[in-house]
Design a protein around this nucleic acid. Structure first.
Lengths: 344, 344
DNA sequence: AATTAGCACTCAAACATAACGAGTGCTAAC
DNA sequence: GTTAGCACTCGTTATGTTTGAGTGCTAATT
C-alpha cells in the first residue's frame, strides 16, 4: 500500500510534529540527514500521503500535520519502542519500595508519578471492589433507625453505607444478623454477596430472627447497589502546558468533561481489554476529548481485572514513550498487588 | 473623611465595575439618573478618590477601576445587603428537605449548590473530625501483622487507618484490646482520645494484656495522627468564565494552588472566626490568589466549630450577594446539623 | 520513468500606519 | 463650587504592506 519512502516520510513527519507541534514542510524534511531526496520529491510524496488521508494541511499553503488516520497508522504500524529513561525507571521501582500500607495510597502515588513522568494528565480507575472478597462486616447503629454498614475487603478496602434500619429491628436482632452474616459471607466476593445471601443466609435467619423477611429484603437492597470505583487523577493542570490548549474555551470544555467522574469511569471501563489500548481523537466516546488521545492499560490481581491506568494528552502525544511507560507500570503493579493480596 | 458625593461615586463605580468588568469613565457616571453633576465634576472627584488610593487607572487615559483598598472600603462601609433571589432561597431550602443520610453527601451537595448559585468556585472544609465523639471502634486483621483500624463517630463519619500490629499480638489480644477500648472510649471526643487512653484504659490493659506496653505505645502513635479534614470543591471550572482568567498562564497558577489541599486547608482554617470573613486580593496568604477574593463563613454543631464554607472568585466579586448567601447557608447548615447530631 | 530545478502562487504572521473614541487633566468662564 | 471647553493620551480597530515558508505544476534532467 505505502512505499518504503512514504513510510519513512510519514514516520519523520509525525515524530517531528509530536516534538514541535508545528506543521512540517517539504524543505525541512529534505534537509534531514536521513533523507536524500529533493524537496520537490518530498512534495509529491506529501501530496500522495495527503490524498490517502494520513496527513493534512492547516491552510492551503501550509506544511502538513498528521491526521487522526495518520496517528492511527503510526500507532499501529510505525511505533518503534523507545527505551525508558533511566531515572524514570528508578522512580517507578522506588514507588514499590516505599512501604505503603494502603492500596489507595499506592494508587494515588502512581497517578502522580505517571503525570510527572509524562507531563500529561493521568487517570486511574481504582481497584475494582466488585471482585474482592469480604473480610469483615459490621453494622453500627448511629441513631434510632439509622446505622452504618461497613464492609472490609481482603485488599484492606473499607466500604461504608449509611442505612435506615427496618422498623422493629432492635439491638439484639442487629447483633444476631451481623453474626450470621459474618459467619456465612466471609471470603465471598462482592459480586456473589447477593446470591450467597439467599443460598446460605436465608435459612439461618428464618430460624433466628423475628422479622426475617424485612431484614432479608433490607440486605438485598443493600447488596444491590454497586458502587462505582474511585477515579484518581494526577497532573490535571499539565493539560495547560500543551500549546493546543492555550484557548480557555477548549480548556473549559475538557475540564468540564473530566470532572464528570461517571463519564470518565465509563470511558476507561470500556478498555478492560488486556494490554495497551489507544484511543485517538474522535475515537473517544466523549465529545470534548476530540482533540485528545487516551492511552489505557489495565492491571489485575491474580488474573482478575482490577482497574485501569490511563494517560490523557493531546492527539499529538508521545505515543511510544507513554505506551512503554504504561506497559511497564501496569505489569509491575499487577505483580506487586498479586504478590501482596493473592497469596492469602 | 470622604464626602457624601465621593461615597456615592465610589459606590457606583464599584457596583458597575463588578457588573461589567470594564473601567468606568466620568461621562458614563455623569449620565446616570442618580447623578446630577457634570462629567467635569466627576472627573475632579475621581482624581481625588484616586489620590486617596481607592481607585486606579489601567493606563493614563483610561477610566477607573477599584483598587484593593477600594474593595476593602466597599466591603467594610458601602455594603448594602441585597435581597436573595427567590429561586436561590428555594434551592437552599430543598437541599435540607432532601433526605440525605450521609453528612459527607450533604456537604458535597452544598458545595455544588454554592457554585451553581454564585457562578464562582466553592470550597468547603469538611466536618471537623477532631471534635466529634467516638461511637464505635473496630480492628480487623487483614493479613499477618497488618490490620485496619476503624473509628466511627457520632456524626456517622468513618475514619480508617491501615496499621501494622505490634509483633507478638495475636487474635485474642486484639479482641481484648478492642473490647477494652470500646468499653472505655465510647462517647469520647477525638481530641481527648489520647488523654483518655492513659486515664482510663492503661490500667485495664495492664491487667488484661500480656505485652501491654507495646500495645499502648502502638495506640498512642495511632491517636496521634490528626487527619486533616476533607476539602470539597464545587464548580472549579467556573473560574474560567471570568474575563480576568482568559489567560491560560493565570489559570494554571491558580489551579496549581487550589490543587494543593493542605495549603487550601490552612487558608480556610485561619478563618475560624465567627461570621463572615472577606479576604481581598493580596490579603490572601496564597500568592497565586492575588487576583482573587475569598469569602468564608463557618458552620458548627451545638456551638462547636465544625467547618468552613468559602467562595473563591475574582476580586471583582459580587460581594453583597455572596455574603448574603454564605450567611444564610452557614446558619441553616448549623441549625440542621445541630438538630440532627447534637440531641443524641 | 523517476527525480529535480524553477517558478508562480497562496496565505498566515509580522509590521506599519492611520483613524477613532473614550477617557484624562487643566484652564477659564459661569 | 461647578461646568464648558480643549488639548492631549493611549488602547483599539481597521487597513494595507511586506515577508517567508510553504504549496502545485511544468519542464528539464538523470
Amino acid at each position: 500500500m505505502l512505499t518504503d519512502r512514504q513510510l519513512l516520510i510519514l514516520q519523520i513527519l509525525i515524530d517531528e510534529y509530536i516534538q514541535n507541534a508545528e506543521p512540517l514542510g517539504s524543505r525541512s524534511i529534505s534537509k534531514r540527514q536521513d533523507i536524500s531526496f529533493s524537496s520537490a520529491t518530498i512534495r509529491n510524496e506529501l501530496a500522495d500521503l495527503e490524498e490517502m488521508g494520513f496527513i493534512e494541511k492547516t491552510h492551503s499553503s501550509s506544511g502538513r500535520i498528521p491526521s487522526e488516520k495518520g496517528y492511527r497508522f503510526y500507532v499501529d504500524n510505525l511505533l518503534s519502542p523507545v527505551a525508558m529513561r533511566n531515572r524514570d525507571m528508578k522512580r517507578i521501582r522506588s514507588l514499590f519500595h516505599e512501604k505503603m500500607l494502603e492500596l489507595e495510597m499506592l494508587i494515588e502515588h502512581s497517578a502522580n508519578l505517571l503525570s510527572e513522568i509524562t507531563n500529561y494528565t493521568s487517570i486511574i480507575l481504582g481497584p475494582e471492589v466488585y471482585e474482592t472478597k469480604l473480610k469483615h462486616l459490621q453494622i453500627v447503629p448511629i441513631s434510632t433507625g439509622t446505622a452504618i454498614l461497613i464492609l472490609i475487603t481482603d485488599t484492606g478496602h473499607v466500604e461504608k453505607y449509611t442505612v435506615e434500619l427496618p422498623d422493629g429491628m432492635d439491638a439484639s436482632d442487629l447483633e444476631r444478623t451481623v453474626n450470621i452474616l459474618n459467619e456465612r459471607l466471609k471470603g465471598v466476593p462482592f459480586s456473589h454477596l447477593k446470591i450467597k445471601l439467599y443460598q446460605e443466609v436465608q435459612g439461618l435467619m428464618k430460624t433466628h430472627l423475628r422479622n426475617y423477611e424485612k431484614t432479608l429484603d433490607f440486605l438485598t437492597r443493600l447488596f444491590q447497589n454497586e458502587k462505582s470505583d474511585k477515579v484518581y487523577y494526577g497532573g490535571k493542570t499539565n493539560i495547560l502546558n500543551q500549546p493546543e490548549f492555550q484557548d480557555v474555551e477548549k480548556v473549559k470544555a475538557l475540564y468540564n468533561a473530566i470532572e464528570k467522574q461517571d463519564l470518565v469511569y465509563q470511558l476507561l471501563h470500556q478498555g478492560t481489554i488486556e494490554g495497551i489500548n489507544v484511543k485517538i481523537g474522535a475515537e473517544n466516546s466523549i465529545q470534548e476529548m476530540k482533540n485528545c488521545s487516551l492511552i489505557t492499560a489495565s492491571y489485575s490481581i491474580g488474573g482478575q481485572h482490577m482497574g485501569t491506568l490511563a494517560i490523557l494528552g493531546p492527539t499529538r502525544m508521545e505515543y511510544p514513550r507513554v505506551i512503554g511507560l504504561l506497559d511497564l507500570l501496569s505489569k509491575d503493579l499487577t505483580k506487586v498487588l498479586t504478590q501482596r493480596y493473592y497469596s492469602n
